[in-house]
Amino acid sequence: MDLDALYQEIILDHYKHPHHAGLRDPFEAEVHHVNPTCGDEVTLRVHLDDGVVRDVSYDAVGCSISQASTSVMTDLLIGKDVDEAMTIHQAFLELMQGKGQVEPDEDVLEDGIAFAGVAKFPARVKCALLSWMAWKDATTQTIEKEKA
């Protein structure tokens, strides 16, 4: 079993020094997601403005994979149009669910390609996806609130 395929340097770096950590104002939606099998938790806020992801802030407890994934996600999504952010979200989801068979696009996923190895460890895919699912939930809630 190739441990180094799972624990890429980039992942360990983000784990030790997470980007955009902490909960910030302003925000339109806050969600709390849990991985019931292991207890990993994230509280995540999104701030959208004029169709752009202005901020993603979070308070998370969990393993290196879930923490690093959250950190990388904020790097990727903050500042993007919501549509573009959703496309990146979809690309990351496909990578994680690809059982190691999906070739990641570095132009889209940047540091996120480091998670390609995680897809080969089925037990850890949920760790990597925890905050991405939380972000989508919070973003969808915000968009629906705006519509209402």
């Binding site: 079993m1 441990l3 990993d40 393993c63 290196s64 850890r124 760790c127």
Partner: peptide
């Protein structure tokens, strides 16, 4: 400094 998941993963290897 190491999350239990990561401990278990390294031990499993």
């Amino acid at each position: 400094g190491v999350h239990p998941h990561d401990v278990a993963q390294v031990l499993d290897s």
